[in-house]
């Protein structure tokens, strides 16, 4: 499939907050109540349309476990967006957000759009973290906030698409240097007129198959 842009997303958060379920809901539109622990990283991809442009979201679903934390860190590099997920029914996942945020800020580029997501909003009865707290946290750290439910699919699309919109706006504003690969944005094949003409920016683009760089 041809696309105008490719955004690399990364989903981070504590183990068991529903990262893999969010991804599954977004890419496959289904919910799987029982899910194995993620090891390493799993991927999902989906095309969305923003501003009549095809944008491919390449989503990296990371392992939330502490044991894989060091592996996860190496995946932050070159992500354009991050979904920082916590579980509204588990207070400690909310408490760990700062750690994750520090990690993300430290290992990725500064322009990365981070969206804070309070997952499992369908479990209203077991809620431990108020929506206002999430909003306050997001405001404090300059994030976008949204409560989602991977089970009922509420706000899942919006979460991903809003992030994409924000990235897209930043591209339009020129915040992101789209030719710099480290930003996590790649230009689609038919939208890369600059690439062949500017060999200096594309790096080793010539040797690569799809010429996306």
């Amino acid at each position: 499939m041809s696309y105008a842009y490719l955004f690399k997303y990364i989903i981070i958060g504590d183990t068991g907050v529903g990262k893999s379920c969010l991804l599954l809901q977004f890419t496959d539109k289904r919910f799987q109540p029982v899910h194995d622990l993620t090891i390493g990283v799993e991927f999902g991809a989906r095309m969305i349309t923003i501003d009549s442009k095809q944008i491919k979201l390449q989503i990296w679903d990371t392992a939330g476990q502490e044991a894989f934390r060091s592996i996860t860190r190496s995946y932050y590099r070159g992500a354009a967006g991050a979904l920082l997920v916590y579980d509204i029914t588990r207070r400690e996942t909310f408490n760990h957000l700062t750690t994750w945020l520090d990690d993300a800020r430290q290992h990725s580029n500064s322009n990365m759009v981070i969206m804070l997501i309070g997952n499992k909003s369908d479990l209203e009865s077991r809620r431990e973290v108020k929506k206002e707290e999430g909003e306050a946290f997001a405001r404090e750290h300059g994030l976008v906030f949204m409560e989602t439910s991977a089970k009922t699919a509420a706000n899942v699309e919006e979460a991903f698409i809003n992030t994409a919109k924000e990235i897209y706006e930043k591209i339009q504003e020129g915040v992101f240097d789209i030719n710099n690969e480290a930003n996590g944005i790649k230009i689609g094949p038919q939208h890369s007129p600059t690439n062949p003409s500017l060999p200096g920016t594309g790096g080793a683009g010539g040797s690569q198959g799809s010429g996306c760089c």
Binding site: M1, I39, G40, V41, F43, P189, S192, G209, S210
Partner: peptide, 25 residues
């Protein structure tokens, strides 16, 4: 269905599923 230059047809629809550290497998 159209031809988009610059796209390698072999990997046009090809997506990664997962990457596991080899010590975990």
């Amino acid at each position: 269905c159209k031809y988009t230059p610059g796209v390698d047809p072999e990997i046009e629809t090809f997506e990664l599923i997962a990457i596991y550290p080899v010590e975990c497998v």
